[in-house]
Nucleic acid binder design. Structure first.
Lengths: 221, 221
DNA sequence: AAGGAAAATGAAGAAATATTGAAAAATTCA
DNA sequence: TGAATTTTTCAATATTTCTTCATTTTCCTT
């Protein structure tokens, strides 16, 4: 447990209601008072985002678009705009739920739990298993056919992210953003370099190259 | 694709609204007019349940409890009882969403899609389907009759743009602008060239030539 | 209906680009 | 400091992209 929730909301009263209610329910909260801050505060550790629409600097739809471009994190829009058009616009941006203000904190909590319950296996398991490969995430071990393969930090993260998203192509930039961070200034070729070493260590054709796009680990058949 | 939805609802008008709207959206519907029938009609093939609360014989909460005892299928309650207490009771039974009547069919559809998107197993990513052709955009795969066809990047983009705009004629210049960028300086014939290769790989007459104008993929009948 | 012009197709080779492998340089960590 | 890791760089290789031109098809004119 101990889920981090990012709340992007400029209304102080609502911030304070959420603070009381959600912290009591055991969530760790991260607040942002405008769109730019919301985007800046978002990271891989966040399990859910609560997003207002009318925000200073960048509005909720914009924030949603930026976050969605790099993550499938659940997003709940919490806003005074109750009209159908805004709602549909929200859902078009792949949000998970839309709650018009005024809202009931109890119901918000229920909805959050309903959504979090549906989350995919990725972060609940301590282990990732793929073909004859086993990753022990807590212990930072990787086994190939039962024998341990020692990976460096970067190799480990690379493999982890790709195994958590089997079937999805990652561009080098996406991998850089997720492993090195969006503000890291490194050559894009660094990804190739680590991937090469990873492939050599794993001695199996797990990672496919999609020329002109990036890399992918195929879904198991 | 082709998801089965179980609708447990005794109001004939709502049955008929849902029938029109959801069938158009490509869902396969199974109707039940009371709680007992709802439980009887439920099976492993059902991807989602839409549940009224006030039902003959067994009420929605009861049906929910029975279904939840054997399955994690997503459940949406759709009911006239808008009070908070009923909603909380619903969420306590591990439903996924609660929509008070009167409801907007469009929003129901959005919510259904948001919930289905979150499902663990069959998380296929974004897809474009046309006749016996399937494009998996997240995975950068193309399947023709189930077998994979490997496309180069330009071929992939060409097919993607045309499939996203079925029925629209693209001039070579339009395709150049969208794929190569408006400032690219390349021969217009490059489009023909890639299109030829694409046609050969797909082995089916998907892409029509509009002489003197450009190319088009017809809308499906 | 025949001939000619315009447009589209097919194919092949050249040019450009992306990926890989490998190794040197820089950095981090103990 | 020394070892391991990370990052950069670069040449070799593989693949794609682009150009060109001959061939075929379609359409228009007579």
């Amino acid at each position: 447990m101990n889920e981090k929730v990012l709340i992007v909301e400029d209304d102080f009263d609502i911030q304070s209601i959420l603070k009381n209610y959600l912290e009591d329910a055991g969530y760790q909260l991260v607040f942002a008072a405008d769109g730019v801050e919301g985007i800046a505060r978002f990271n891989e550790k966040i399990s859910l985002v609560i997003l207002d629409i009318m925000l200073p600097k960048i509005d909720g739809f914009g924030v949603c678009e930026v976050i969605r471009s790099k993550s499938d994190v659940p997003i709940i829009m919490l806003t005074a705009l109750a009209d159908e058009k805004s709602q549909l616009k929200g859902y078009a941006g792949k949000i998970d739920d839309y709650i018009p203000k005024p809202f009931s904190a109890k119901i918000l909590l229920c909805k959050m739990e309903a959504i979090l319950r549906r989350r995919c296996a990725s972060d609940e398991g301590e282990q990732l298993i793929y073909k004859n490969l086993k990753m022990d995430l807590t212990g930072h071990h990787v086994f190939c056919d039962g024998t341990e393969v020692v990976l460096t930090q970067k190799e480990f993260e690379l493999l982890k992210i790709m195994l958590e998203n089997k079937g999805k192509v990652f561009t080098r930039q996406m991998l850089l953003d997720r492993i090195w961070g969006i503000d890291a200034y490194v050559e894009e070729r660094i990804v190739d370099s680590h991937l090469k070493n990873l492939r050599k260590k794993l001695s199996g054709s797990y990672i496919k190259t999609i020329r002109g796009v990036g890399y992918r680990i195929d879904v198991e058949k």
